[in-house]
Design a protein around this nucleic acid. Structure first.
Lengths: 216, 216
DNA sequence: CCAAACAAGATTGTCAACAATTTCGTCCGC
DNA sequence: GCGGACGAAATTGTTGACAATCTTGTTTGG
């Protein structure tokens, strides 16, 4: 059994580096458009440069970083226009997932959704935007999970990863939670009612509102 | 100026290898589930193993090949279920593109579509399924292009790459062209009428029919 | 005769040094 | 004082060799 405390060297160092780096970017530890120097990252995460390199290539494929030949890597900045385009894709794909979930989810899973709806209502009433934002993510995640649509889920995860900054910014806007709560509850209602078309429409209405908010 | 006749060594050898390999897979030169040995491919394409390796990693990110640790790469086989799931995603994303295209396309571009529709009608009347299949791809491609939705287009290209085998199989089925022609013409009509909702509905109807056909 | 262990071959994963390219500071000529 | 060119430092890209791992064929004991 190899010592796991210091995964500096190769076995799954790449995976380690990739996970660390991805989370660092998603949490905003790296400033937008910041240069990512391979040597620095290698020393920082205590892995070899090759591992960092492989991780950066993977992240570039995910759209989280941008690589320019002989010029290095930067964290990719998503313009508002791109964020809108991405959210439009999210809209149709999550609509598909919701419609599927309305048909495929089990009764226990539908109960989870109604519980989540109550928790979200409470979070808004108590004026806790952070909690609400977390529950929001959980709701979207559960809908995707219940749909059983692996392909769409994979695509959505990639798309969402590129939006963390804009999303975060949006969640803290005053008055926004109240505005989106009713839309979220409508999503839950239509899915638990096992009405695919209504569920898709509800998701679309919600994300159309998100797009409008994104545009300021 | 370096000699371009023998791009064996590294500069853009990776790109060369990647393109070659991708086309080989898409054209079906590689049997499904065939093992892809890095050394063999390196010799076959006359590039270094590192280039082949990088190309395989990229193709894995595209979903065209499957990589298992210490066990090599294989061309990924898409089951019918997966093909259906992928086509469902295509359905909503192409629906989005069609709706966008109905609004964003220029008048010249709409003319291209009507011309394409006439050509498709003629191909069916003349009983040329191969020509029809090519025009079919061209139509879908143009709709995506005219939408201006870069994100959706990128996702769709990835999805379509995984379906070539099933698509090919489907196009040669007797009676299928006649069946899909009217749906394609409906797509063209609704887009040229600049009616986003009808265009999306037409695309969905078409791909719903494709899904049904996929299931045999 | 069969099963399990073993060994040889093949294949992929990793690493460290080297080469190519870009960037930035400096110097020279005008 | 200013523009362009040269050169050094920094950074990425590539190569070849080595190590780890898996597969396959053979042998040995029951």
């Amino acid at each position: 059994m190899p010592k796991e405390a210091r995964p500096s060297t190769g076995e799954q160092a790449k995976q380690h580096a990739l996970t660390q780096l991805r989370q660092a970017i998603l949490q905003g530890d790296m400033a937008p458009a910041q240069r990512l120097v391979e040597n620095e990252l290698a020393e920082q995460f205590d892995v070899t440069r090759a591992s960092i390199r492989a991780a950066l290539i993977d992240l570039a494929a995910e759209g989280l970083v941008e690589r320019i030949r002989n010029r290095g890597s930067r964290v990719r900045v998503v313009t508002v226009e791109e964020a809108v385009a991405i959210t439009e894709c999210r809209m149709v794909l999550e609509g598909l997932c919701a419609a599927k979930a309305a048909v495929a989810a089990s009764d226990e899973q539908l109960t989870e959704l109604t519980d989540l709806g109550r928790a979200m209502t409470k979070a808004v009433a108590d004026g806790e935007p952070v909690t609400y934002s977390e529950l929001n993510s959980e709701l979207h995640h559960k809908v995707r999970e219940f749909s059983g649509q692996q392909t769409a889920v994979a695509l959505l995860e990639r798309l969402n990863a590129q939006l963390v900054r804009h999303r975060f910014q949006l969640a803290l806007r005053p008055g926004r939670p109240q505005q989106s709560l009713s839309q979220h509850l409508a999503m839950i209602e239509t899915i638990t009612a096992r009405d695919p078309q209504a569920a898709e429409a509800a998701v679309r209405a919600h994300l159309t509102s998100v797009i409008a908010a994104l545009r300021d």
